[in-house]
Structure formats: C-alpha cells, structure tokens
Amino acid sequence: MSSDTITGTDANFEAEVLQSPIPVLVDFWAAWCGPCRMVAPVVDKIASDHKGKLKVVKVDVDANMASAERYGVMSIPTLMVFKGGKAVETVIGAVPEAKLAEAVSKHLA
C-alpha cells in the first residue's frame, strides 16, 4: 500500500473520513478480491496525484464490515467520495484510471 493512503477501520472512520476537512476517497476492498487488487494501483496513483487536496482511505471490509454495511456496500471494490461527512459519489468495480480521476476531480475545489 502506498504511503499516500491511510488504513481506515470501523473505529477511525468517523475521525478520518466523516470529520475530514478535505474530500476523502474511500476504497472498500478485501484481500480475497481479485478486482480489488486490479484497482489498487489506480487508487494509489490518484492518492499521489491529488496529495494534499484529497485524502485516500482504504477500508478492508473483512475486518470492518460495519462501515461497509452502513454505506450499503454490497460489491467490492466500491470507491466512494466523501465530502463534509457525506457520500457524494460512488464508483463500483475495477474502473480505469481516467474514470476514477473524473469521479474524484469534480468534488475537488
């Protein structure tokens, strides 16, 4: 995992995601999910491209099912953009870099 991302848990979700002063991209993933591995380098790239303007948090749903359930995640990878404590964008599946970048960019000031 790249150093530009944070590990999210049920315990720190409130502080790291919902209370974040800047927009947050949350990557709901799991170790047993092939497509999650496919999209991981794309998420890392987005994190380094938008460093300082976007926080990227990776939540392993295996250990943090409560956060996943709370936001209705039923398929992984699910990538959600949070702004001001609210989910404002959801991208489901291993999407190409351009598509994820577009979904993120429109929520960045």
Partner: peptide, 15 residues
C-alpha cells in the same frame, strides 16, 4: 449492479 447484482462471487459473497 453493486446493489445486489454482482459479477464476482469471490469478491462479494461475504456480503
């Protein structure tokens, strides 16, 4: 899709 419809049981079965 992603709201109950899935294309990968290994990925989403746990839900």
């Amino acid at each position: 899709a992603g709201r109950g419809v899935s294309y990968c049981a290994v990925c989403d079965g746990a839900f």
